[in-house]
Simulated assay, not measured.
Amino acid sequence: MNTIPRLFCIVAFAAIASSANAQLNIGLRTIQMKVGIYSIQAEVADSPDLREVGLMNRTSLPTNSGMLFIFEQKAGNCFWMKNTKLPLSIAFIADDGKIVNIEEMQADTTNNHCPKAPIRYALEMNKGWFSERVIVPGNTIQGLPKR
Rank of each mutant, 00 (worst) to 15 (best):
N111S: 11
W129D: 04
M33N: 04
F79L: 06
L55C: 08
N25Y: 12
A20F: 13
A45Y: 04
N64F: 09
T3L: 09
K116G: 13
R58T: 01
S60N: 09
L144I: 05
L7Y: 08
G27V: 02
I93F: 04
V35K: 01
E124R: 00
Q32L: 11
S65D: 13
N2C: 01
N83A: 11
M125V: 15
A107E: 14
I4N: 08
N111K: 15
W129G: 01
Q32H: 09
Q32P: 00
I26T: 14
V44Y: 06
I40A: 08
G76D: 14
I99D: 11
P118G: 08
N111Q: 13
D95Q: 14
S60I: 06
V134N: 12
S65K: 15
V100T: 12
P115N: 10
T84E: 07
S131N: 09
G54L: 07
T63N: 12
I90A: 04
F130L: 05
P137V: 06
I10A: 12
A94V: 05
E124Q: 12
E103N: 10
G54A: 10
N111D: 12
T63L: 13
K82T: 11
K116C: 03
G36S: 07
A94R: 15
D96Q: 06
C9P: 00
L28I: 01
R58A: 05
C78M: 03
F8S: 02
F79G: 00
V11H: 00
C78F: 06
E43L: 12
M105R: 07
N2L: 09
T110F: 06
T30Y: 02
M81Q: 07
G97I: 06
L86K: 00
N25P: 01
I102H: 04
E124S: 09
Q142D: 10
A15R: 00
L61S: 06
E52H: 13
R51G: 05
I119R: 07
D108R: 14
W80M: 11
E72I: 01
I90W: 11
P62I: 05
N101E: 12
F8Y: 08
E132W: 03
E72D: 14
W80P: 00
T109S: 14
A20L: 15
P115L: 12
I99K: 01
N2R: 15
G143I: 02
A14T: 12
G128I: 02
N25E: 08
T109D: 04
I141C: 06
V35N: 03
T84D: 08
T3I: 06
A22R: 14
Q23M: 13
E103P: 01
F92P: 01
V35P: 01
H113S: 13
L88N: 03
Q23H: 14
L7V: 03
T140W: 00
P115E: 12
V11F: 13
E132P: 00
Q73T: 11
T84P: 14
A12D: 00
E72C: 00
A12N: 02
A94Q: 12
A75H: 14
A107Y: 04
L88V: 02
L24T: 15
I70D: 08
Y121W: 09
S131Q: 13
T109R: 14
I93S: 03
N57F: 15
E103T: 05
F13N: 09
C9T: 01
G76N: 15
F69G: 02
A122V: 02
K82V: 09
T63Q: 14
A42C: 08
V136E: 15
D108G: 04
P5C: 07
N139T: 05
S89V: 05
I102G: 05
Q41Y: 03
